[in-house]
Design a protein around this nucleic acid. Structure first.
Lengths: 197, 197, 197, 197
DNA sequence: AATGAATGAGCCTTCATTCAT
DNA sequence: TATGAATGAAGGCTCATTCAT
């Protein structure tokens, strides 16, 4: 693929990401993406054959970005304190939660749901598990350095991930306030560390 | 509306519930409901004007059922122990989580999401909050009777509800095992009571 | 299928026959048939899913008609003279040849060709062979009654059928005059019987 | 036009001939020819503006080739016996018949048919008549030399041409065996000469 | 000349909704 | 009320043709 094509694809992905964030997965038509990206109907088909293909590429590009972020974080494990990393991790999660109807969560759920219907794999599992592992690593390290005090790291990490997932969904549907998110995150942190209000 | 009409409506709702559980919200067509309910295309329009109207009625009938259940539970608060009630509550939640792709969660998320787009209210908020309040009541009472030991009931109830919500979504999309659900529930309970394995 | 549906289907077939006769097979779109039959786009899909399906039904209805005609002719073998039957047979062929661009031949060739591409059977073979057998029967009988004098009936029938087929194609493409057709038919008949000019 | 352009055009014609033979006329797209010829989409338009233009050029180049062949044959009339020439002529026809779905006949019929619709001339008539004249010449000469005995040369030539045309069509659609073609040709020849089996 | 990405018209198909019976 | 045939709008896809490079 030529460089020019890559630029075009990136434009499509950027606009498509907005569309999927606003409309979910199922409700998005090729026409939507055509109109959002300013490309002609036929032109879009040069690069992608279906909304599914585009959606998967959107996820892939996001995964690439997240993998990068996670790698950076693991690097930082060596220098930064666990508490700092945890704060960074939760801040990222908070950001995503608060994007609310502008995040891809609902689209991903819809997609994963339709995949399940058809017995396909959606990749959502991997994404969810990876984030859980990162959290585990941070907690484990914090326990070792004495920053945290937690006797069931796996259980805690899992609980936090599900609660965060729940907040994302609630944020994307009925909505959630920043204050509420903060409260939840503080509640979680109190289970294993001192938190000043 | 005649009694006969009510019977017909109930039939439609029952079958529509199955359809929405299996296919989500957006993906459901009038044809799906027509075929599932065995009623003619035109006949369906006598009772409902759109899939949205049907879906809202499905939610309403479920709410009615749940309100009833909650009322019963509050009644039982007087006779049963808080621990018993909590177990019953969590068992209900577990059941719903494990229904996985056969529960209405995804359809509700899709619907709530599209409502948010259009500024409508979906009723999902009410449902989520009601369940939270029930849990709160149980925990409060347990604290009073000394069965539970929890110093932030609101925070705990909220955390549990989000984590449960997260599990529902994960169950409906990437899937979750019963064992995993049990683990999560036990983890939650350990925060305020003794749990034997 | 209800009677009403049959009426509708017949209307579609009648109009579609005109369309296929005028435009061949490949060049016909659902839109053409929709416009010719005065039915809505969606309405057509209730009865037929593709132009191929319609075309096959057109052929089937013609076959039914021809089978009937052949059966009648075989009946008449008992009473009529072979010469009379032969004249009738050739008159039928002549009629079809002269329909020229209004006959289905070209559409059938196109269809049979595309079937061959895909390894399907088109039914054209059967039609061609059936007509040949009818001719053979007439010639055989004429030989027995002394009306005809032919020492290679199979060869003759085959030759005549190919020549007639050739005329149909030429008529449908470059065109042919009635006089020319008559000349050809007389030439054929002279091979085995007396023909007055 | 430069010589280089001629080379390019010839390449296009060669490849296009294959395509039209395989897919008929209507079913051929610019893309097919682009892919077959290895020339770019835009490049093709430098030389030809439509598939029709290409197809006409394909026919023209074939005509040129055949005219050449016919002229050669007429030349040979002076040296070779009529029987030899006839055999050569029929062998050529047989070859073309047996090419079956790889000959241009169907494409020509499709094209001629669509021309007739629009009142254009397709050139198919000329081709058909030219071949008939060649056959006539051979038969006439054979009659003069006493090799053949035929009292209606025009009628015979015409009959043969139609039968051959019929075989081409049948070969391109439902198929025909070599043995069957031989039988037909022998049957024709017996009408005016001795043929050993 | 040559390339191939881009355009947009046109056909295919589905489905919410209407309406004669 | 109930039916299901009919409608037409909307979205999917392909392909002839153009155009910047």
């Amino acid at each position: 693929m030529s460089e020019r094509a890559d630029v075009k694809k990136q434009l499509i992905l950027d606009k498509a990401t907005e569309v999927f964030s606003k409309k979910g997965y199922r409700n998005v038509t090729m026409k939507d993406i055509v109109e959002a990206s300013g490309i002609s109907r036929g032109g879009l088909y040069i690069y992608y054959d279906s909304t599914e293909e585009i959606f998967l590429d959107v996820l892939k590009s996001m995964d690439a970005w997240e993998d990068e972020a996670n790698k950076n974080m693991v690097e930082r494990l060596k220098e930064a304190s666990s508490a700092e990393l945890l704060l960074w991790f939760l801040k990222e999660q908070k950001k995503e939660i608060l994007k609310g109807k502008n995040n891809l969560s609902i689209a991903m759920y819809e997609y994963a749901f339709s995949c399940k219907q058809e017995g396909k794999s959606s990749g959502a599992k991997h994404k969810f598990e990876t984030a859980g592992l990162v959290l585990e690593k941070i907690l484990l390290r914090g326990n070792e350095t004495g920053e945290f005090a937690c006797d069931d790291i796996k259980g805690l990490a899992s609980n936090m991930m599900y609660a965060i997932e729940g907040m994302k969904v609630i944020a994307g549907t009925v909505g959630i306030s920043e204050k509420k998110v903060d409260k939840e995150l503080v509640y979680m942190m109190r289970q294993f560390m001192e938190v000043e209000e």
